[in-house]
Design a protein around this nucleic acid. Structure first.
Lengths: 165, 165
DNA sequence: GATTCTGATTGCATTCTGCAAGCAGCATGG
DNA sequence: CCATGCTGCTTGCAGAATGCAATCAGAATC
């Protein structure tokens, strides 16, 4: 499975890590959906990923340093997946990609409101969201000056507001 | 080849257009490398794309509205591919993705200097670059106040400066 | 008329994908 | 204790996608 890279171009190397049909969706569900366990990623997947594909992608993402896995202290046979800083640092990429998709592709209103909000929030909002993810996944305390509703809660609230119509 | 989309999520739909190992590289070569013809894309490809794969991806990109194709007036059997506004609008995505790759992956110095410059330039530089692409591909005159060296020339000069070492 | 260049197609082997089924280890309810 | 279900993950298998090499016809060039 370990092959040499085709070129040292940043975009090419990024594609070799993320350029398939599922890896980025797994990261999306962890980043925006707060999923941490195999079953959550499997059953709550909007696109219906197969279990063997999910297992393969999780292994890949761990191997490429995007995720770490550790046993769940509360359930001995459970595994918790955590985002690494490398993965959290994808937030601006996902924000731009989601924004582009919202502008040009036939997205559904309820699923695109989050991309819209994140794009409108700009780098300041992205940074705040990344700080929240660091706290959640890397146990890095966030700046206590950042009070109020979390970014993910705000995104989720907006989603529910649109979806209820 | 025409299949329904898995979900209306912006990131998912974007991946269905761009989420394979080659499409984004073709667009990268057109946007940053200024390639317009089949042979340029084929022979000057850093990663060595095969001709049938290139043909397949070009067809896909035309079908999804990322490119247009028109006969070359100077050579009757030649085809010129042009970026659409939808593709030009990918510049911020590519800038973020290239920046991420430069920060986290083992990129080569000479191939990452452009990503570095583009990231450092920020949205202002991206907009200028996009204006240049619109002039080149869509015949939309750029603001004459934007004088001086073009963004692509600047990126290319930086690449050559690093590569010569 | 031979050669070259154009974009694209074909053959064929390999890899990827995904659905269904099943696995062992652990927890829980009775 | 035993039956049941949940945990993450693996296997079988068929079909689709992918990629490399070789080749193609049409047009321009020499």
């Amino acid at each position: 499975m370990a092959e040499g890279s085709r070129s040292g171009c940043p975009i090419n190397l990024s594609l070799e890590v993320l350029g398939d049909r599922w890896s980025l969706l797994v990261l999306r569900d962890m980043i925006f959906g707060g999923r941490r366990h195999f079953r959550e990623l499997l059953n709550d997947s909007e696109e219906g990923i197969a279990s063997n594909i999910l297992a393969s992608r999780l292994k890949n993402l761990v191997d490429t340093g995007m995720l770490t896995r550790q046993p769940d202290p509360t359930h001995r046979q459970k595994v918790i997946y955590s985002l690494t800083e490398q993965a959290i640092d994808l937030v601006p990429v996902l924000a731009q990609l989601g924004s582009w998709g919202t502008r040009w592709l036939p997205v559904s209103a309820e699923l695109s409101i989050r991309a819209q909000l994140l794009a409108d929030g700009g780098p300041a909002l992205w940074q705040r969201f990344m700080a929240e993810l660091r706290e959640e996944h890397l146990a890095i305390p966030a700046d206590p000056a950042l009070d109020g509703q979390s970014v993910r809660e705000r995104l989720q609230a907006a989603y529910l507001a649109v979806a209820s119509h």
